[in-house]
Amino acid sequence: MSHRRSLAALTALVLSSSVTAQSDMWSNARPLTLSLSSFKFEPSEILLEHDAPYRLHFVNGSSGGHDFAAKTFFAAARIKPEDAGKIRGGRVEVGGGESVDVQLIAPSSPGTYKVRCTHFMHSAFGMTGKVIVR
């Protein structure tokens, strides 16, 4: 086998194992449901393990819209490429009665990130929380 063919075969093997590892990582994402309702997040404190994959399931049980704004958190997390478009300006918008799933890997460093709903007066009425990465 020529060196060129060996290199091509090795490259294909590395790429295929990388794709397999990536898909295994996302298939093992821990599910976490986050409820958005009239002026609260449930839970209001979200505990995540650093570098662990999660599938955040945002559910809006009210008729009006809400968002989950955590710009610093989303910037520090690694978002699954297919879900990156669901985060705009550091927030996930969830219409009334709708749900949105976002898969991500929690930030590498432990820390606390503020969360709020940016809709008019929602955070003033208590729609705030935090993500704690340990």
Rank of each mutant, 00 (worst) to 15 (best):
S123Y: 14
H66K: 10
K40N: 10
S16D: 07
S99I: 04
A70M: 03
E49R: 06
H57M: 10
K114W: 11
F58N: 01
G65V: 00
G85R: 08
E45T: 15
V115P: 10
L7Q: 11
N28P: 04
K114S: 15
A76L: 05
R78G: 05
V19Q: 12
V92I: 11
A21S: 08
Q22T: 04
H57D: 06
H66S: 02
G64F: 09
E93H: 01
S63I: 08
P43C: 07
M121C: 12
F73I: 04
F39Q: 07
I105N: 07
G97P: 05
T118H: 09
V92F: 07
S18E: 05
T72I: 02
E45L: 10
Q22C: 05
G111M: 11
K86P: 01
D51V: 04
T72W: 03
T128F: 09
T118F: 06
A52G: 03
F58C: 01
R88Y: 02
V19C: 14
S35K: 14
S16P: 09
F58I: 00
P81M: 02
G64M: 08
L10F: 13
S109K: 15
K71L: 00
G64C: 01
E93G: 01
S23G: 00
P31H: 02
G126A: 05
L15N: 03
